[in-house]
Amino acid sequence: MSIDNATVRRIATLARIEVTDAELSTWAGQLNGIMGWIEQLKEVNTDGVAPMSGGTDLKLTLRADQVTDGGIVDQVLMNATEPQDGYFTVPKVVE
């Protein structure tokens, strides 16, 4: 296992973080360092062990499927950059 510059480029694209070409090898070095240290997990025998997801032993509860909040457009938009007519705005996506 080794993370090369192309892999860093792919991960950065998936993560939506701009990375310059000059930064690629620094990132590769750092990620290889961390992932190399994590490799030790391979020595643990986990045959037949059910993966643990979540942090609790309690059953997650469901609530009634009802609208309990809403009608607060002003609050929803109050931290947005350049909201318009009750909407968020983004760069043009359809030509």
Binding site: T13, R16, E18, N79, V90
Partner: peptide
């Protein structure tokens, strides 16, 4: 950068995110 916090302009939506 869409709903709250910092937004740095980009040439398209993905570029703005990144």
């Amino acid at each position: 950068g869409v709903r709250f916090g910092l937004r740095v302009p980009g040439k398209n939506l993905d570029d703005m995110y990144a």
